[in-house]
């Protein structure tokens, strides 16, 4: 049975990202737009996703904080990022490419969010 909810407006004002979780020994250098590992490996996503794609930490304040000041949950939060594709690009079409990035432990299309209201 379909249960009605309050969906997002269909005007495209809210885009759906790809949500990714980094492997624990990788991080993203936001200045160089390159992933780096503790072992010295690097990976540039350039060319694997459309031009204009933004790759951002989900919680930048945790990502850029001194690790010693964070609790275990905040340290875990540092591993989550979003790949925000240019308007008009379907995230599902790019999921396979992003999953193949060496730093990525898991990736999925961002959740389809709604309000838990009954009509």
């Amino acid at each position: 049975m379909t249960i009605p909810a309050v969906p997002l407006p269909k005007d495209g004002s809210v885009r759906t990202p790809l949500d990714i979780k980094l492997k624990s020994d990788w991080y993203f250098d936001t200045k160089r737009r390159t992933f780096k590992s503790d072992a010295g490996e690097t990976f540039s996503p350039r060319g694997t996703v459309p031009q204009g794609t933004r790759i951002v930490y989900k919680v930048p304040s945790a990502a850029h904080a001194d690790e010693s000041s964070l609790n275990e949950h905040e340290r875990e939060l540092r591993r989550y990022m979003q790949v925000i594709l240019p308007r008009g690009e379907s995230p599902a079409n790019h999921l396979r490419a992003v999953r193949a990035w060496p730093p990525v432990e898991e990736a999925h299309v961002g959740p389809n969010v709604s309000l838990p209201k009954q009509p």
């Binding site: 249960i3 979780k21 905040e74 939060l77 969010v113 709604s114 309000l115 838990p116």
Partner: peptide
Amino acid sequence: ELQATGPNGKYVAMQFWGDIFSAIAA
């Protein structure tokens, strides 16, 4: 005050997703 579609195609609580779970725990 949100929900989202889970693996069975039904709405679930937001802490299903790992980042949200960690943010709540923090």
